[in-house]
Design a protein around this nucleic acid. Structure first.
Lengths: 193, 193
DNA sequence: TAATATTCTAGAATAAAATTCTAGTGCAAG
DNA sequence: CTTGCACTAGAATTTTATTCTAGAATATTA
């Protein structure tokens, strides 16, 4: 049994818990220190500063999501399956990683201004391009409606995102899982050919 | 000519400029003090603390938006007009108040945890109820598709919101004004009967 | 209008938080 | 061994938020 604590991981877990309970801005390094049992020096050694912790959690969290999404898209046989996969994949990810998702909604702006902001922009662009790559054949086959290209993402995932955001913050109650089908139906009506 | 400076207003303007340029967390009271020309004491007199400034800007900004939205809904003759009004009203508001909108996207969580969080929740509930009030007759007349009630908002405004958010942060370029029609079309396909 | 209260402004003083610095500890490669 | 390096600890410093005290401006009222 390996009981050597992994400090970096402990710090990350303490941080995300604090961020969600208190909010990012209101979380002090000292709160993270206390909760994780690490020392100040240790925290700064691993992450540089508070922003560094936020950026690390954010970028790795997003990676996890995009990995799932792209895998799902790859399996989709046609446009409708692809669109439905994007919606359900999004909702399932939020459900499976609630704390992370809640955190990510709050951290976006912070990260985009941080030292890692450029990296985020880069990843974002790559991921989106990869996703749109799957769309091209569907578009050519006329399975998808012709729309301004920058709109597809917002039309397909926007409603699920908006709903999940509200759900994670407690503003609405209905379990997102029960809404996957209506959300996917609506997304398909919005962009389907 | 009345050249007496309104300190409160000067502080608010300096604050929103700083928040947008530096981010809320990275904006120090001192930055606001310098930019507004007010003193620390004055700032704390008017707003209590930094959170107070954020909450004030946020709540008043939202009020402005909801006022427009409810006015637009009131004029809508049928469901389709109502849905289209919700979309265009949203986009027009973002375009007309870019700095405020950008700020509001970032401040939501902060405000909901602040002393004014309860007030926000309250207003939110009222506004949503008022908006859904307009929907009732349309639903009864079958002009709107039957859907889980908590979904209408996300389906209609979600995509516009997601797009505007990306546009305000520079991730996408196409002028939102040119997308009002496709966004409204899609919203109507999503919820129209 | 003078007296009095209230709101507002200023900036120094204090408290709280972030970050840096110095000094280790323990482990792995040679 | 012993040298180098990643890691940890916590004190010291710097930066930032907030509080406090006092005085100026403005409104209120007798």
């Amino acid at each position: 049994m390996n009981d050597k604590p992994d400090r970096k991981q402990e710090i990350l877990q303490a941080a995300i818990a604090c961020f969600n309970e208190l909010g990012i801005e209101a979380t002090s390094i000292d709160a993270i220190r206390t909760r994780s049992g690490a020392s100040v020096g240790s925290i700064y050694h691993h992450f540089g500063n508070k922003e560094g912790i936020v950026a690390y959690l954010f970028l790795n969290g997003l990676d996890d999501y995009w990995q799932r999404l792209l895998a799902a898209l790859q399996q989709a046989a046609d446009a409708e399956a692809g669109v439905r996969a994007m919606v359900s994949c999004y909702v399932e990810w939020v459900l499976a990683s609630q704390d992370l998702a809640r955190f990510i909604f709050q951290a976006r702006t912070l990260v985009s201004r941080s030292a890692q902001g450029e990296q985020l922009l880069q990843k974002n662009k790559e991921n989106l391009r990869a996703a749109l790559g799957y769309f091209k054949p569907w578009l050519e086959r006329g399975e998808l409606r012709q729309l301004p290209p920058e709109l597809y993402w917002a039309l397909i995932v926007g409603p699920a995102q908006e709903y999940c955001r509200a759900w994670l913050s407690g503003r609405v109650k209905a379990d997102p899982r029960s809404l996957i089908v209506p959300l996917a139906d609506a997304a398909w009506r919005a962009v389907g050919g």
